[in-house]
Design a protein around this nucleic acid. Structure first.
Lengths: 341, 341
DNA sequence: TTGTATGCGTTATCAA
DNA sequence: TTGATAACGCATACAA
């Protein structure tokens, strides 16, 4: 090993390793002169305190793990960006894990992370979860955990969510106001937190406007592109809705493709509104009416929440819930008189 | 600390710590009986070998760092996904760093990573880079590094790229075949690897077809949305091109917005082709003709390349270049008779 | 097959 | 202000 370490740097400067170490931490007493001397030499030799040794010694990693269901989704990449920004400001690094909506992977990631690799976890849960009690099994030893967006309601841990119920209610109402009578709700897992909450908003909005709720208009989709294509085309053909409200971005895209195939016109034959953080929603054909979540901000808030726990150990069990507001942006996919862009 | 460690597990089972350690490593001799006994108890007590202690001891981190210019870009999120997949298969974790196209951040990240935190780096470089000789300063101690897509040509390290020159040539030729006479090239940094290579393809295609090359039709854009909006609108108004070839996805979107504002019709007034990994390019208005890079595959190849270096230390200095093929997908933004979707 | 002892690179405690 | 030393949790060489 020709690599540099604290001992070699100490020898090179005729100091003890403790003095070197002190030069790198802000609190310890050290004369300004020796400190700058050491830092200079360190830069010259490209020395940096070994991260693993420091962490072993200090029992923390300055690293947070981020677990998301998918990456090819504007919402999550924006959220991660927000997390990354706050983490970096706090001198933390982020590890990324993608579950592909696979429950087993999620469990494995979490279990694995309990080896000291990360000081805390920020997670949006996978859509497959049935038994997520595994999180409780860690007991007092569980790593600080913050949920965002897709949460397990029964796990008591800080979370950042948006006003999903309300947004869904308004989204459904918007379709009704645009004249829709048969509104479909497209969802990936209607038992999962967001799928469920959003469905309730949909149901209640129908009720308020005296529209009969038909169970079959709740269309349960999958995570497979091909399956969804079939499911949605069947639904459109057989149920003949005049509007759909999709709980995730991907299903709106699938609906667009289905309409192209079936030669249905959006918005004339079918109006579409969707949760989506797509920045180019205005460029779609037709431009997509969205419920836009403040994704980057959600990430930032989640990170801040985690750092709050990490900072003051005492209120480790404080239950915090941050609710941010989404906003509905009406565009041509729900508007009868589309101003041609 | 009530947390579990190897010693406590050893005591609980009346074994020595070395025996425990052996149970977790595949090579060492240990009887099957004790091994399963230990693993069982470990699971019960939720014990996992401390990552930092192991890594300090073994002098490696089983972690690779991924540095990208941006995250809100389909290309990079797909590439990261590819990297993550290969990394996970190899038992590695990935750290994500976003430079926001800021050169200083890039340098800091790289420097910082030389503290043992990662075993290797996969990077797509920032667009601002002028002096990137800093990478050579690390000398023999430099971490294994693999470039993908946006590279520094003078840094001799393995890289995964696509046939950018050829694709650009064909893209330009495609516009010419569609009848374009004045073709603009929109680029963020024409001196950077990809911006430069892609420009050359453009220039040579013009030459082949005896079209005069006008310097002013090379439009240098920025990373700011607002600035680009102005730049592009000015270019369209003053230069009156009938086709544009954009070197990155973002500039195609900006062009769409500009055309909407200026009431220019794509493709009638202006044809647009762009490098893009956008999966919903068919849904745009009009659907966007793209040069699509195999982003996920690029990520996978980059990771494989890195693992090849990591595995056999001997040929650390092998220079590997993997070239993957992009493909041009013609859609309505360059096609005169758009079949209405 | 299992146990003992040592060191990985760092930092905190204590003494000088 | 600086130096000597022990300890963080684990993995290996060596001994048994």
């Amino acid at each position: 090993m020709d690599s540099i370490n604290i001992k070699k740097l100490a020898e090179a400067l005729n100091f003890s390793t403790s003095t070197i170490s002190r030069a790198f931490r802000d609190n310890s007493d050290i004369s300004a002169a020796t400190k700058s001397l050491i830092l200079e030499k360190a830069k010259e030799l490209n020395y940096q305190p070994n991260h693993y040794a420091s962490n072993l010694r200090e029992q923390k990693s300055k690293t947070i793990a981020v677990i998301v269901p998918e990456l090819a989704n504007n919402y999550f990449s924006q959220a991660i960006h927000g997390i990354e920004r706050v983490a970096r400001e706090n001198g933390y690094h982020i590890l990324i894990y993608v579950t592909d909506d696979n429950y087993d992977k999620e469990v494995n990631f979490i279990r694995h992370l309990h080896n000291g690799r990360a000081d805390g976890i920020i997670m949006s849960v996978s859509g497959e979860a049935n038994d997520h009690n595994y999180l409780n099994k860690f007991g007092a030893k569980r790593l600080p955990l913050v949920f965002f967006d897709r949460i397990y309601e029964d796990i008591k841990t800080p979370r950042v969510i948006t006003n999903d119920y309300n947004s869904s209610f308004l989204a459904t109402e918007h379709l009704i106001e645009q004249g829709c009578k048969r509104i479909g709700y497209l969802v990936v897992n209607k038992t999962l937190s967001i799928g469920k909450t959003r469905m309730q908003g949909y149901i209640d909005a129908l009720a308020k406007h005296n529209i009969n709720f038909e169970e079959q208009l709740i269309v349960d989709c999958s995570n497979s592109y091909e399956e969804n294509s079939t499911i949605i085309k069947d639904a459109l053909t057989q149920l003949k809705p005049d509007g759909v409200f999709t709980s995730v971005e991907r299903l709106a895209f699938a609906t667009y493709y289905a309409c192209y195939d079936l030669h249905l016109s959006i918005p004339d034959d079918l109006k579409v509104i969707s949760f989506s953080s797509l920045e180019i929603a205005p460029l779609l054909n037709p431009s997509l009416t969205t419920i836009t979540q403040p994704a980057a901000e959600i990430g930032e808030e989640a990170a801040k929440l985690l750092f709050k726990i990490l900072d003051d150990n005492q209120d480790k069990n404080v239950f915090n819930e941050v609710i941010l507001q989404s906003k509905i942006v009406v565009r041509n996919s729900t508007s009868d008189s589309p101003e041609k862009p």
